[in-house]
Each structure stands twice: as C-alpha cells, then as structure tokens.
Design a protein around this nucleic acid. Structure first.
Lengths: 140, 140
DNA sequence: TGGTCAACGCTAACATATTAACTAAACAGC
DNA sequence: GCTGTTTAGTTAATATGTTAGCGTTGACCA
C-alpha cells in the first residue's frame, strides 16, 4: 500500500498551506480571513454576482458563504440587493470602501506572489497550473 | 493583475476537492470524516504516536486534533495513555476494532485511487508529486 | 387556474480551522 | 532547593466546512 505521506489530497493540503504562508500575514493586518479575501477578489473582478455564482467561483458552500457575506456586510465591505426579476436571487457587490482597500492591499499581495514565483520558477508554476487543471476535470 | 482563477491556492483547493470526491462516498458509509481517516491512517502506519507528532503528520492543528481524538475515542477507534517518563505527553494508538475497520475499508479506497490514477496517468501523478514537494519547501 | 416541482438562499446541527490564553509538567540556571 | 522559562496538551472564542432540511419564489404542466 502507498505510504501515508504519498496521499495526493494530503500533498495538496500541505502545498496549499505552504503557498498561503506567503499571503496570510498581509491579510491578517487588515484583518481579513482567507475566504473573505477570495470573496472580495472575485467581486472585484466580476463587479456583481449572485450568491450562488459567488459560492461556485470561490469554492465556498452556500451555508458558509451566508455567514461570510453577513460579516463582510457588517464590516462595510459589501452590499446586497434583491434581483428585481427573480426575488429569490441576491446580488452582491463591493462598496467603495472595499474597492479602496483592494487597491491598497492588492499590490502588496502581488509582490509576495512574485517572491514565491521566483523561488520555484515561473516555468514550474506553469506546469503545476496545467496539472491542477487536469485534476479538476476528473470525474469519480 | 492575474485573473482570479489563476490563484495557486485556489487551484490547489479545487484540485483537492476533485481528488477527494473519489474517496468521500466510501468514508461517509462508515461513517468517518476526512480528518478522522487521516488520523487513523497515520496511526495504522506508525502504531503509536504522541499527539504533537500526529498533528504534524496529519496537518491538523493541536486544538482541532484534541476534538478529533475525543470523538474517535468515544467511537472506540483509538485509545490514549500517558507517557511514563514525561507526564505531559499523550500516546495514541488504534484499537483492534479500528484495525479491523481499516483492513476492510483500505482496499476499497485503494481501488478508487487506481481509478483516479488511470484517468490522469501515473506519469502525471508522479510529476505532480514532485512539484507539490517543491512547493512545500518554500519559505516566505 | 391551480397544483406540482425545482431553484435559491437561508437556518440548524455538528465537525473542523484558527488564534489566544491557560494548565501542568519538565527544564534551565543559579 | 527556587525561580523563570519552555513545552505538551487543552480550553475558549470566533470563523468556516459539511450535510440536512426549511421557506419563499418561480417555472411548468395538467
């Protein structure tokens, strides 16, 4: 049988921890959690999203997202509004405060990303990107 | 700036989800959580471990591990004993019940692993293994 | 038109992640 | 022997992950 450490899911978990260690200190200063930043980053790119779309893009399940959205709203970073056509849908977008914060933090995180890319080489990151994309296509 | 979806941590998260989807259904039958299985699998390989060693190998922080250990103990899967030399240390090992369960479940999980490896090819898994190991060596 | 069903977001209940702080045991130096 | 420090495990508080189920809304069809 394979050794314990060779488990692919465990390796993915460890690798993720290793990469996040580059960014976590900056987010903690704000302070923002990892998931909160994923949500803000997605909204910065797509402007306005339904709760369901947001959950899918951020890889966060709806029940978790509900709490995250509530807390971000309380902190003044996002606003919700109900869709006029479909009353079931909730549309979420960034406040100006969040946009300002994003512009301030984003370059610092990019710098850390470069530091990471330099250590492992852009080439290998490209390889990794390809392999991970293939993993995501797997069907059980 | 990089696109949202190109984030390495997010890609690692998605890939992990994709691979776990092969194994989760089997664990749910037992039922066992992903983390509980990590603990049991580690103990099966190392026989007896201190709480701290177990946490490190399973990539679970001590406070989380405390709860997991408590629940596994209540389910009759593990037993703890205090080290005689150092009263601070707690030694943890599998019960016979857990060993039996492991022997029954392990081959089914291995079969799912092969199904996954066949889809993406052993070769690419090897590449991935190498790249992920390098990621883990990064120092912020 | 009314009934049925599916979709969306939410709540509830439990397990885990994360940080800070606490307790008890071992250890260091004096 | 005492004291300050370190270490292992735990508790506390908050945030998130995970599954099941609920309420509302909208789509569809008899």
């Amino acid at each position: 049988m394979r050794k314990f450490e060779d488990s692919i899911p465990l390796q993915l978990l460890k690798a993720r921890e290793a990469t996040m260690s580059f960014f976590r200190p900056i987010l903690q200063e704000i302070p923002l959690t990892e998931q909160q930043w994923r949500v803000i980053r997605a909204l910065n790119e797509y402007k306005e999203l339904e709760s369901k779309q947001l959950a899918e893009r951020c890889c966060i399940l709806s029940p978790s997202l509900t709490g995250i959205i509530n807390r971000l709203e309380q902190q003044g970073y996002i606003q919700r509004r109900k869709s006029t056509e479909d009353q079931r849908r909730v549309l979420i977008s960034l406040t100006d405060q969040a946009k300002d914060m994003f512009e301030e933090v984003s370059p610092r995180l990019e710098a850390r990303y470069k530091a990471m890319a330099d250590q492992i080489s852009e080439d290998k990151l490209e390889q990794l990107n390809t392999l991970l994309s293939e993993l995501c296509k797997l069907k059980p």
